[in-house]
């Protein structure tokens, strides 16, 4: 194991964990307000493409991150329109958003880069800067959720929307803000994936990491710090599988390809019952129904 857990593996783990960590943080915010965001994968991939295009056009990967976050917020606005104000089924809508974003990013990417042509690599943001950014955002999310009135209102809306409504909180407005924040984080996560050490956009670059992030939120019991720790564990298993793929091991390398997803599944299973789900998660709020 010593050979595996080298510094290189740790840094690869961080690199792979950061996009998932950022998206999971966003999902914590929106889910605690009662909005289940199954569009997370779509918001990540939208953010990734926006970030790549912006960073490639301007030469600045930081502007790429910004563009990714903005597009994530816009994608969040679509979800808000449907599920918060339209009271549509959150699960079906989220799946629809993820499907559309997947097809749309493929289409837009093919518009600009024909198949076979190698897309240019970006100027990349260093790992240390991304780690710092993640830590700062983690602290910010923790502070807002646990230490501010807004955080309290957000939890109230996610646990007992009728009570929050009776107290004069705007349930729809708070859910909308939380979902937009969640979308922004997911877009940022996708952006961090392409503007970080990878420096490239490829079709389906997120490879299910949005769904992984959703599983990690359950694993983390809807708390920010455990969500980031969970993302690091996912990144570690991803990094280890990348490393083991190259070695002559008796285990076929395809097993390692599946490993991060298997571990995510196990994490989901282990904690699904133990975690306290926000009581109104996934339930549209209609005044005067209970």
């Amino acid at each position: 194991m010593d050979a595996i857990l080298t510094l290189a593996t740790i840094s690869a783990a961080l690199r792979l964990a950061i996009p998932v960590a950022l998206s999971a943080l966003g999902a914590v915010v929106s889910e605690r307000s009662g909005v289940l965001n199954l569009g997370l994968e779509g918001m990540m991939i939208s953010g990734a493409l926006a970030a790549y295009s912006a960073a490639e056009a301007t030469g600045s990967p930081w502007l790429g991150l910004l563009a990714g976050a903005i597009v994530g917020v816009l994608a969040g606005a679509v979800l808000v329109a449907f599920v918060v104000y339209g009271r549509a089924n959150q699960i079906v809508t989220g799946i629809a958003v993820s499907l559309l974003a997947g097809f749309l990013t493929t289409y837009l990417f093919q518009q600009n880069y024909s198949i076979g042509q190698v897309p240019p690599r970006l100027n990349r943001i260093g790992l240390v800067a991304l780690v710092l950014l993640t830590v700062v955002l983690l602290a910010l999310v923790w502070f807002v959720l646990e230490r501010t009135v807004f955080g309290l209102a957000l939890d109230a809306v996610g646990e007992a929307p009728e009570a929050a409504d009776a107290l004069g909180y705007g349930v729809d407005r708070i859910r909308a803000i939380a979902t937009l924040i969640g979308g922004g984080f997911a877009g940022l996560g996708g952006a961090a994936l392409v503007c970080g050490p990878l420096g490239l956009f490829i079709e389906n670059v997120t490879a299910g990491r949005g769904w992984v992030a959703l599983a990690l939120v359950v694993f983390a019991g809807w708390k920010p710090l455990p969500a980031v720790v969970g993302a690091f564990l996912f990144g570690l298993s991803d990094a280890v599988q990348l490393r083991l793929q190259g070695t002559d091991s008796a285990v076929p390398y395809e097993f390692f390809l599946a490993l991060p997803y298997l571990l995510t599944l196990i994490a989901l299973v282990l904690r699904a019952r133990a975690s306290r789900t926000p009581a109104a998660l996934g339930v549209p709020f209609v005044r005067g129904t209970t």
Partner: peptide, 30 residues
Amino acid sequence: LQVRFGASVVISSLMLVYVAQAFLQWAIRV
């Protein structure tokens, strides 16, 4: 996993897609 452990079938069924894709690669290679 949903019925016994309460693990959301939305997410678990998708995780199993990635496992199946890896299994396909092994199946056609070996």
